Simulated scan of single mutants.
Amino acid sequence: MSRPREFDVDRALHQSMEVFWTKGFKSTSYEDLTRTTQVKKQSLYCVFKDKRDLFLKALALYREQSIVMLEELASREVSPLKKLEAICDATLYQNEETMPRGCLILNSALEFGYDDREVNREVTLMFDQVERILERIIRDGQEQGLITERQTGKELAVYLNNVLSGAKVMEKSGASREQIEAVLCTSLALMTSENAG
């Protein structure tokens, strides 16, 4: 007869996500995870097969949380340009503590490259989901004459998605908030219709 689970799995997963986000997969030891979660290695193994399984679930959790946040920003009752500004602002680190961590999805893409199918699946899923949200907002903006129609909504969504990723890489590499904001503001300005305002 198996023993009952003695810890909050969701809480342990959230805590593990924070560790992986800070240290990366390879630099995270089981000791890091057990110390942070206060759960014994054997107990973690009962729920998560191994460190990699725990990491992949943490990566999926990070993606899901990020998409929920973007969907919330996209559903606000403001103009499409204001929505894009809010998304750009949310992309930037909120304080000095989170600044060096960057984005867990991008960090993982850089750590693993494109050879790891399971990690790459999460990265691709994140990019696709973000792109769809951006395209929806951009098309609304184009219909309202606020965003240029020189490119399609999809092309602009791909462009802005890459700008946001670049901003996270700049953040991770120590660029100042002012430098990153300048890049984001320039990108939005290039997308804005001449008839807007």
Rank of each mutant, 00 (worst) to 15 (best):
L190Y: 07
R35I: 06
G113A: 09
A167P: 02
A58D: 05
E6G: 14
L160S: 04
R121F: 07
V19D: 02
Q151R: 13
E181V: 05
I147D: 05
Y114R: 13
S193W: 00
G102F: 06
A167E: 07
E131W: 00
K57L: 12
L92A: 01
T98I: 13
L81N: 01
S43K: 09
F127V: 11
L59K: 13
N161C: 11
E171T: 11
V68E: 15
R101N: 11
R117F: 09
L146V: 11
D115Y: 06
A182R: 14
L70Y: 14
Q65G: 01
R3I: 02
S193P: 01
D140H: 13
P100T: 04
M69Q: 15
Q94R: 15
Q94F: 10
A157H: 01
E71D: 05
R5H: 11
A58W: 01
L92I: 07
E18P: 00
K49P: 00
V123T: 08
I138S: 09
D115T: 04
L84N: 01
E194L: 10
T28E: 05
L190N: 07
D116C: 03
V123D: 10
Y159G: 03
K23H: 12
A12I: 11
S108V: 06
L184W: 01
D53K: 09
V47N: 03
K83S: 09
M17Q: 15
K26A: 14
L73H: 03
D32I: 08
K57I: 06
E118D: 14
K51F: 04
V163C: 10
Q42P: 10
L188T: 03
T28Q: 06
G174D: 07
C103Q: 04
K49V: 07
V9M: 12
V163I: 14
E72G: 09
T186C: 08
L184M: 06
M191I: 03
L61A: 01
R177S: 06
S108T: 13
T36D: 12
L81Q: 05
P4G: 03
L184N: 06
G24Q: 12
F25D: 07
G153I: 03
S187E: 06
V130H: 01
A167G: 09
V119W: 02
Y93P: 02
F25V: 03
I67A: 12
N120W: 14
D50T: 05
S27F: 10
L164Q: 08
K168E: 10
L164K: 11
N162T: 10
A167H: 05
M1R: 08
R11D: 15
L110G: 00
E64Q: 15
A86E: 08
F25P: 04
C46E: 14
R136E: 11
R136T: 14
E64C: 03
R136H: 11
K51Y: 03
V169W: 00
R177C: 04
F7T: 04
T91E: 08
V47P: 00
R150C: 02
E64S: 14
S176A: 02
L33N: 06
S176W: 01
Y114C: 12
K23L: 13
R5E: 15
T98D: 12
A196R: 10
E149G: 07
S108I: 03
A60S: 12
Y45A: 08
I133F: 01
N95H: 13
T192C: 01
K23D: 07
F112K: 08
R101Y: 14
I180S: 10
V47A: 08
R150D: 10
M126V: 10
R132Q: 15
A189D: 12
E149P: 00
F7R: 08
P4V: 05
L54P: 02
E143D: 13
